[in-house]
Simulated scan of single mutants.
Amino acid sequence: MSNVETKPEEVVCGPRGLPGPDCAQEGRAPVEILTARDVPLGGPRAMTVRRTLPQRQRSLIGPWCFVDHYGPDDVSTSGGMDVAPHPHTGLQTVSWLFEGTVEHIDSGGNAGMVLPGEVNLMTSGRGICHSEVSTEDTTALHGVQLWVVLPDSVRHKDARDFEHFAPEVTSFDGGEMLVFLGELWGTRSPVATYSPLMGAEVRLRPGATLDLPVNESFEHGVLVDSGDITVEDVPLPTNALGYTGVGLSEMRISNRAEADARIVIIGGEPFDEEILMWWNFIGRTHEEIARYREEWQAEGERFGAVDGYVGKGGPGRNAEGMSRLPAPRLPDVRIKARRNPPPHVQS
């Protein structure tokens, strides 16, 4: 998925290593709440996504740098997803659906359907472009789109990789989970990543409480899709992302609702490289970002081309008549660094 904001904010992230506040819940860890903001994904009939990462409060959770949550949308009225070919550098895109089907095509020659319960991971390396369009038979669209930062050691690779994997359901007392990346509670995904991390969908029955063993070297984020959820006894609003810093070995999650609940958990070791993120590019300097933008606008070879994109406006065009998304204008001043907070909960 693309960041289609016309004035995207620059984000520079790096560790600072300061301690967080004391815990307010006796015997439980503190939780920082990141609220979502609505972002339209496309033109006037665009679907709206709820973005919790990045934001000024926090830019990274481990190597996770982007969290969009959308739906359930009735795409017969919203028009559905129609993201024309757009570029990426220095990251992996992680697509995870609850409902609906999205067609993915990229410039690495990969094409396929993103299906519920099946993770699709695209690695950009030095440059890739792709399109994402919900299929005509999709009546409801619901899921998350996530990005992972690539370390400097692999971000310049030429390969444009694409993997998909349907994890088996792991049941526990009070619910079940699907681990789509990394490892959680003894369940491991075979999908290749380049930093220590994890990602999973967890479903909780009404009234269930889960004391979930987690990696204490990871910081974690819990995204609430549905249910009346508490994390470490702290209530989390629907669509919000609850953050816990490093040092937690067991996370208590409860569903106080009288219906089933669903959450998505992400986590990873604090990312120890300073990065700069602007629009769909991740680099290390202002000059890199400016060069990526120039090459995308010039249709340079770094990104390649998407062959076979059919948008809502017909073959090769989205609903707004564009065959590819143009890059926004760079700021008139040099992009400045914004530091990520330390891997501890902020007051």
Rank of each mutant, 00 (worst) to 15 (best):
M1P: 15
E5Y: 01
E9K: 15
R16S: 14
R16G: 15
L18I: 02
P19M: 02
P19L: 03
V31S: 05
L34G: 10
R37V: 09
D38G: 09
V39S: 10
V39L: 10
P40A: 12
P40N: 11
G43V: 01
P44T: 00
R45A: 08
A46K: 04
T48A: 10
T48W: 04
R50V: 00
R50K: 14
R51T: 01
R56S: 08
Q57E: 09
Q57M: 09
R58T: 05
P63T: 04
W64Y: 15
Y70R: 02
P72H: 00
D73N: 10
V75T: 14
V75P: 08
G79Y: 00
G80E: 07
P87Q: 03
P87W: 04
G90I: 00
G90E: 00
L91H: 08
T93A: 10
T93R: 08
V94C: 12
E99A: 06
E99V: 00
G100N: 03
H104E: 05
H104P: 08
I105S: 02
S107M: 12
N110C: 08
V114K: 09
L115M: 13
P116D: 08
P116A: 11
M122D: 14
G127H: 09
S131I: 03
T135I: 12
E136C: 07
D137H: 12
D137I: 01
H142F: 14
V144L: 11
V144E: 01
Q145M: 03
L146A: 03
W147R: 09
D152Q: 12
D152H: 10
D152P: 07
V154A: 04
R155V: 03
R155I: 01
H156Q: 15
H156S: 15
K157G: 11
F162S: 08
E163D: 13
F165L: 03
P167F: 05
T170V: 10
D173I: 02
M177N: 07
F180V: 01
L181D: 10
L184E: 00
L184R: 05
A192H: 11
T193W: 01
L197C: 15
A200L: 13
P206D: 03
L210C: 09
G221L: 06
G221S: 07
V224F: 05
D225C: 11
D225W: 05
D225Y: 04
S226I: 00
G227V: 04
V234M: 06
V234D: 02
L236R: 07
P237M: 00
T238S: 11
N239M: 09
Y243G: 11
Y243M: 14
T244V: 15
G245A: 04
G245F: 01
V246Y: 10
S249L: 02
S254R: 08
N255H: 06
A257Y: 03
E258I: 01
A259W: 02
D260V: 06
A261L: 11
V264R: 07
E269R: 14
P270G: 06
W278H: 06
W278E: 01
R284Q: 13
H286N: 06
H286F: 00
E287I: 04
A290W: 01
R291W: 09
Q297G: 12
G308V: 05
K312Q: 03
A319V: 13
A319Y: 11
E320H: 00
M322G: 10
L330W: 00
R334H: 15
K336Q: 13
K336L: 13
R338F: 00
R338W: 00
R339E: 10
N340H: 08
P343N: 13
H344C: 13
V345H: 13
